[in-house]
């Protein structure tokens, strides 16, 4: 970090993958208690190269490959956190975090509560999640609802490289366990930014694009799609606001409800299946909190209620700009012909 002394570093183009790598390196540098481990994260640097170079730089006591067992990775991270360390573990892919589900839900999420605050577990579980990369089955799940439904966990999903850096640093500093969902389709997207220059608090949502007609609520992999839809909507005459949730749990009611009260219309966007999905919670909260400000029902644009499709079919499943615009069009505008779609 000595190189940064003196003039502040200039903004430079950075991918989300390298921003995450920098966040891990800076956290390892800042605090000896931080350990990074998982499958292939050592010599290889992870299958997505997020941990590239870290083992060489920090040594194999602090950055290491584990035996291939996800429950083992999370379970031992719990024991390490009990003994004062700050484990940051990687699940290789979303669906391969499921073997660790019992450790996450029965122990990681509950330990602080059952010990009346005596044992906190500051563990970060990094999960490359979601589709859009042509992955075969079991490599593309959006598993956020399993975690957001679990009291005691924080669930975070960055949508931009700069935010990926800030949120990962904040997650590692956080005394609560954090499920850190990395949208793998955005790993290689670039942003020109100065990492760490002006971090937002971990549990605040952010208005990424101001608009007055309708609020699109998105996170992780869908943030860029929502922003694209907002630009395309200009041609249709809609002024679209985009809120990036950043943290899915706990939910930032204030920022989201304030936006929807301003615009009076809202669409929640996520890749994950629709039924019982995270968007249902957002829609319900907005209905409870903003009912009299709403000109139309809160709509959801989501994946279908199907197991994640094969690569050649995933484009039909994933929310697209067109599908988002279609929902926006159905928000009971004065000249509206099309009603909201029902029953799906």
């Amino acid at each position: 970090m000595t190189a940064t002394l003196g003039a502040p570093p200039a903004a430079a183009p950075v991918t989300m993958a390298s921003a995450l790598n920098r966040a891990l390196a800076d956290a390892l540098e800042a605090d000896d208690r931080v350990l990074v481990f998982g499958e292939d994260v050592g010599t290889l640097g992870g299958v997505f190269r997020i941990t590239d170079g870290l083992a060489a730089r920090f040594g194999d006591r602090r950055v290491f490959d584990t035996p291939l067992a996800e429950s083992g990775i999370v379970g031992t991270a719990i024991g390490m956190a009990m003994n004062g360390l700050l484990p940051v573990v990687e699940m290789q892919f979303d669906a391969f975090a499921y073997p660790a589900f019992e450790q996450v839900t029965s122990h990681l999420a509950k330990m602080r509560n059952r010990t009346r605050g005596a044992v906190g577990l500051p563990v970060v579980i990094r999960v490359p999640y979601g589709g859009g990369i042509g992955g075969v089955e079991h490599h593309c799940d959006s598993s956020e609802a399993y975690y957001t439904h679990t009291s005691g966990l924080r669930v975070v999903a960055p949508g931009t490289p700069g935010d990926a850096y800030d949120l990962l640093r904040a997650a590692i500093d956080c005394p609560d366990p954090v499920i850190f969902l990395e949208p793998k389709r955005r790993y290689w997207s670039k942003e020109t930014t100065t990492l760490g220059a002006a971090p937002l608090p971990i549990d605040r949502a952010a208005v990424r694009r101001a608009g007055s007609d309708v609020t699109l609520i998105a996170y992780g992999g869908m943030l860029a799609t929502a922003l694209e839809a907002a630009e395309a909507a200009v041609e249709e005459g809609w002024d679209v606001e985009v809120v990036d949730l950043r943290t899915l749990a706990p939910f930032d009611d204030d920022t989201v409800a304030a936006s929807v009260r301003r615009t009076g219309r809202a669409v929640v966007v996520h890749e994950a299946q629709r039924f019982g999905g995270y968007g249902a919670e957002v829609a319900a909260r907005l209905t409870e909190q903003c009912f009299h400000h709403l000109a139309a029902p809160v709509l959801r644009v989501t994946g279908f209620d199907i197991p994640y499709p094969a690569p050649k079919l995933e484009e039909h499943h994933l929310p697209s700009v067109d599908r988002i615009l279609d929902a926006v069009a159905r928000l009971q505008w004065d000249d509206q012909v099309e009603p909201p779609r029902k029953g799906y």
Partner: peptide, 20 residues
């Protein structure tokens, strides 16, 4: 109570002791 889950906590805690 969740059977065998404590075995991993023990290994993690012991490993942390080694690291420290």
């Amino acid at each position: 109570t969740p059977l065998a889950t404590n075995t991993l906590h023990a290994v993690g805690l012991a490993h942390a002791a080694t690291v420290k």
